[in-house]
Structures are given as structure tokens and as C-alpha cells.
Design a protein around this nucleic acid. Structure first.
Lengths: 127, 127
DNA sequence: CAGTATCCTGCAGGATACTG
DNA sequence: CAGTATCCTGCAGGATACTG
């Protein structure tokens, strides 16, 4: 019974699935990664989050803000100035995310070796 | 300078980006989560990974196997029997993934509260 | 600057049928 | 059982133009 918990928790936990997708999704993870470095304005983020479009960055930031991971600080000046930064919750999440990323990064030699073994096994099967 | 490292590492590290997407993607994360519980056959996994199609499970397992995260054990019997389980590398990655998931799961009350605050702020702005 | 609105397209991924 | 092959569709997400 107990060994089902860890899995069930994210296979069925629908509300958290949505948040998890915001966190681990392509733009979500990159945005959290960028904000882990500090506070940035919208267009600074656009430059940091390589390849993101205006639309997707806006959409991503809304999702993360709504989930309480990112704080949006809009200063009532002209021209507008809006700063984004992680909330304490966002920082905790980003920390774990960066930990996962760092682990995978550090193990890429193993991954690359596995890929080569896999590909050569396929190219010349059974030998 | 040093504060750029953690971010650059995954913004630009293309090879790892691909692996990261396998790990954090919808079916990849669920499959790793399932295999974190133990070893399973193809159709057992289909039942455990809720909502996955044959095609996507096959595709996901290939990617994870090629990355060296999952081991495929095909026994030469009839009818065929194939067991999938995590490699040591896969286990390390799944551990961090489950850690991230567990963190988000545990903090969902905060997320839900943030959403309610966000939504009511939108419904009745400035108040 | 910090976005929103609209249009459009490629491809993730589902459904279905078939195979060793 | 453990897949592969084919067809098809919805929507993620890009491009472009516009706004407070």
C-alpha cells in the first residue's frame, strides 16, 4: 500500500499536475531558472529565456504568478516598469528544479555513452 | 560571472535539454514515477501511467532507454515478456524528480491560496 | 516598456488496424 | 503480449500588428 503513495500522488493529483506542468514545461522551467538568478523586467527575461516569444513569456509568467511562484511588481511610472522575481515558494521549487537539472547535466557523459551504445546496437543488431 | 553558470548550463546545454525534456515531459515524468515503484511489463505500465496510449508509451520508453535511464529486459519466450526498470542513473534522476513532485504536492495549499487571491484580485480589481 | 489580440501552422499525440 | 504503421486532429506556440 505505502509504495503506491509516491506515484499516486502525482498520477492522480490533478491540481498539482497542472502546477507541475507549469514548473517543468519548456518555458516554465527556463523562466524559473532565469528568475533563480535574480529579479528581472519583462524584456530582460525575454532576452534571458532564449527563444521565448512575447506571447509565451507573458502566458508563462501569468501561470507562475497565479500559482504563487512568481511575484509581479508593477511600478506605476511612465514608461511602465515591471519587475518579476521568485516568491519564497517559487524559490524552493526552483531550487529543486535546478537540482534536477544540475544532476542531469552532470550525468550527461553517461547519457551520451548510453545513446551511443543504443544506436550502435540498433545499427548492427545481434552482431 | 559565476551566477550565470547555473542558468547557462540549461539554457544553452542542448544535449541535456533534450534529456531534460524526456525526464520532465508529461509521459516521461509519469513513466519514471511509475518505474520508481519497481519493475513492470509494457501493459502493466500502460495501466499505471494513466491515460498514456500504446504509441506514446513505446515512444517514451525508447527515449528513456536510449538516454540510459531505463533498462529493457526482453525475455525470449512466447508470448513475449518484456520488463522495464530504472537503471542506477535512472533511479538517481527519478529520485530528484520525485523530490520535486513531492515538494510541489506538499505545497499545493499555498498554490491554491495564491490562485484564489489572484483570481479574486482579477474579478474585483483595485477594490 | 510591457504587454494584448489575431491569425496561422507544425507537430504532439490519439485512434485504429495490423504483426511477430 | 509487446509492440509498429498509418492516418488524422487539436492546440502549443510563432509571427505580426496593435495599445495604454
Amino acid at each position: 500500500m505505502t509504495d503506491d503513495l509516491a506515484f499516486d500522488v502525482f498520477a492522480r493529483g490533478c491540481a498539482s499536475r497542472v502546477t507541475l506542468e507549469h514548473v517543468t514545461g519548456r518555458w516554465g522551467s527556463l523562466t524559473l531558472g532565469a528568475l533563480y538568478e535574480g529579479s528581472f523586467r519583462f524584456n530582460e527575461l525575454r532576452r534571458r529565456v532564449d527563444g521565448v516569444s512575447e506571447k509565451m513569456l507573458a502566458q508563462t509568467l501569468h501561470a507562475l504568478e497565479r500559482d504563487g511562484l512568481v511575484h509581479r511588481d508593477a511600478q506605476p511610472v511612465n514608461p511602465p516598469r515591471v519587475d518579476y522575481r521568485l516568491t519564497p515558494l517559487g524559490r524552493d521549487v526552483a531550487e529543486r528544479l535546478v537540482g534536477l537539472i544540475t544532476l542531469v547535466e552532470g550525468r550527461m557523459p553517461e547519457v551520451v555513452a548510453a545513446r551511443e551504445a543504443y544506436d550502435s546496437g540498433r545499427a548492427a543488431p545481434a552482431g
